[in-house]
Simulated assay, not measured.
Amino acid sequence: MGPQRIVCLTEETTEWLYLLGEEHRIVGISGYTVRPRRARAEKPKVSHFLDGRIEQIVALEPDLVVGFSDMQAALADKLIRAGLNVLVTNQRSVRQIFDTLRLVASMVGAIDRAERWITGCLARHAQIAAAAAAWPRRPRVYFEEWDAPMISAIRWVSELIGIAGGDDVFPELAAQPMGRDRVVADALEPARRAPDVIVGSWCGKKFRPEHVAARAGWADVPAVRDGELHEVKSAEILQPGPAALTDGIEQLHRLFAAWAARHGAG
């Protein structure tokens, strides 16, 4: 049986339950949910990322509320104090994302369906990695999660960059779980690391490649010189769930494959 009335405070749990065919269990979602599109029309929007409508959530009588990360600790505390069962996951790596998907699936009795999906996803990742292994060169990649301050890629994004055929220029920052610890303090450091491709995903706002290209001291960066500044929408790469493992990595791979075709032999 498992929980019958679930409130999802972040998008990845909503998308996962829809993929598993268990969307009937969802009674409330985050207002930031865009995947799947139909969820916005079908489910009440009861939370933002950092806070939520506590009375409305309680009125839905959920038997489980699912959130993500320390960023929702204050919201989770309010809901716990309101007497609700709350699960907050904290997945930061690709492996942890898969493990979290399995955990949610097990709670709703859908582990077989989950394993089939995960097996297919892992097989596709292997295909992508094998294709990238044939390239003469891999692009050096600067992934920017935010622009002011500049924040580099979180761990799962860095790992997906690697599977997709690129090399993250800030691997040491990717190892840091907190956004504040992934701030690039020196505005010239990304330029010094000479990325071939810059990917922007400015969590909730439009990436402006022209602003990046105009940064002082960045004119000679290979990515700027060659016009290799691209956007991957945050909903497709910065939520630690199905989207990043499918659409996110596919977009990265297409960008890197195109770069390899244009520049890889040089």
Rank of each mutant, 00 (worst) to 15 (best):
P44G: 09
P44E: 09
P44N: 05
P44K: 08
V46A: 02
V46R: 00
S47M: 06
H48F: 14
H48C: 12
H48N: 15
F49D: 11
F49I: 13
L50K: 14
L50T: 09
D51Q: 10
G52A: 14
R53N: 15
R53A: 13
R53P: 08
I54R: 04
I54L: 10
E55Y: 07
E55H: 02
Q56W: 10
Q56S: 12
I57L: 06
I57Q: 03
V58I: 11
A59C: 13
L60S: 09
E61I: 10
P62K: 09
L64H: 02
L64I: 06
V65G: 00
V66G: 05
F68V: 13
S69N: 12
D70W: 13
D70T: 12
D70P: 10
D70S: 14
Q72A: 04
A73T: 09
A74K: 15
A74P: 09
L75W: 00
A76K: 01
A76S: 09
A76T: 04
D77I: 00
K78A: 03
K78V: 02
L79C: 06
L79M: 07
I80S: 14
I80C: 08
G83N: 05
L84T: 04
V86H: 05
V86N: 01
V86R: 00
L87K: 07
N90R: 12
Q91C: 11
R92C: 13
V94T: 10
R95A: 13
Q96R: 13
I97C: 08
F98G: 04
F98D: 03
D99A: 14
L101S: 09
R102N: 09
R102M: 11
L103F: 10
L103C: 07
V104A: 08
V104K: 07
V104W: 14
A105W: 00
S106W: 01
M107H: 14
G109W: 02
I111N: 09
I111H: 12
D112L: 09
R113P: 01
R113L: 08
A114M: 11
A114V: 04
E115F: 00
E115Y: 04
W117N: 08
W117R: 13
I118P: 04
T119N: 12
T119G: 12
T119F: 05
G120T: 03
A123N: 12
A123C: 12
H125P: 00
H125E: 03
A126Y: 06
